[in-house]
Structure formats: C-alpha cells, structure tokens
C-alpha cells in the first residue's frame, strides 16, 4: 500500500469513527433517562360489598403516576360464582372495549373484536383473551393489581 492510499484509508476510518461516535452520543442523549422496571402495585378500587353478585360490573381505580392522579377502568365479573377482574384493554391494538349488557359480550369499538364474559375471543381480530388482573380483598376493600413503573427510592 502506497502512502496516498494509506492516508486515504486512514482519513476515511477517522471520519467513520467520528460519525459513529456522534451517532452513539446522539442515541444516548435521546434515550429517555427515566426508564425504570415495572412492579405490581395494588390500587384501591371499591368496597367488597359492591362486587357483582352475578354478571359484569364496570369499576374505576385510581393510582398515582409521575405525581399525577390517574384513573383507569376495570371490569369485575362474577361468572357462576368465580370472581375475577378483566382489563378493558383489547389484545389486538390496545383500544378500550365496552361491555354490551344486552348481548352479554365485550365489543372493541376500533375493529369490532368481541369477547365473552370470561374474556375469551368470540370473533374479530384479537389474538388473545382479555387479560385478567390480579385482585385482592383487604379490610373490606377491593384492590386491583397493575404493573406500574417502580417508584424511585
């Protein structure tokens, strides 16, 4: 390799290395600084007495996110004696499903996905059933478990 070709390769390598360094710094700069692991947090939802004796009941629970009070919905279902909480988030693309009392199904307003009261898919594009959220009863209050970003220590 003569001197001209060596210098040309050297200059190209230096420019490529500098460009890669700038790209790495830029990506690191743009990557959010507040990414934290999620953890299961139980949020207070309702009185034990308000749980449905049979059928479906829509309820809301409150939680705190980044210091802001947030509200989310959950469907509490009493299916022949077994009680569980269904997330209203459609498994297709994440729209919130609505419960239709007359047909006794959950219908997604976005693409018409349908689920029965057990959360299983009846028809439409959803690839999986509605998620069941963990719940517990303590001192007569019902708590819903959701995955929230861990609170900074």
């Amino acid at each position: 390799m003569d001197r001209r070709n060596f210098l040309r390769a050297a200059v190209k390598s230096i420019i490529a290395a500098a460009a890669a360094g700038v790209a790495a710094v830029a990506a690191y700069f743009m990557y959010p600084a507040n990414v934290r692991a999620r953890q299961l947090i139980y949020c207070e939802c309702m009185d034990e007495d308000s749980l449905p004796k049979h059928g479906v009941k829509r309820a809301e629970y409150r939680f705190e996110l980044k210091g802001k009070e947030m509200t989310a919905a959950v469907y509490l279902v009493n299916h022949e004696g077994t009680l569980y909480a269904l997330s209203p988030v459609c498994s297709h693309l994440g729209c919130l499903v609505n419960y239709n009392r007359h047909t006794d199904v959950f219908i997604c307003p976005c693409h018409g996905g349908k689920y029965d009261t057990a959360g299983e898919v009846i028809s439409g594009p959803p690839p999986a059933p509605l998620a069941r959220l963990p719940m517990k009863v303590e001192n007569g209050r019902v708590y819903i478990g959701v995955m929230l970003p861990a609170v900074a220590a």
Binding site: V25, Y28, F29, Y31, A33, N34
Partner: peptide, 9 residues
Amino acid sequence: REVHLGWLI
C-alpha cells in the same frame, strides 16, 4: 440535570 449527556450537548 436529567437528560443523558444533556449538559454536554
């Protein structure tokens, strides 16, 4: 203070 390398950029 918070953004990665924000002080540098």
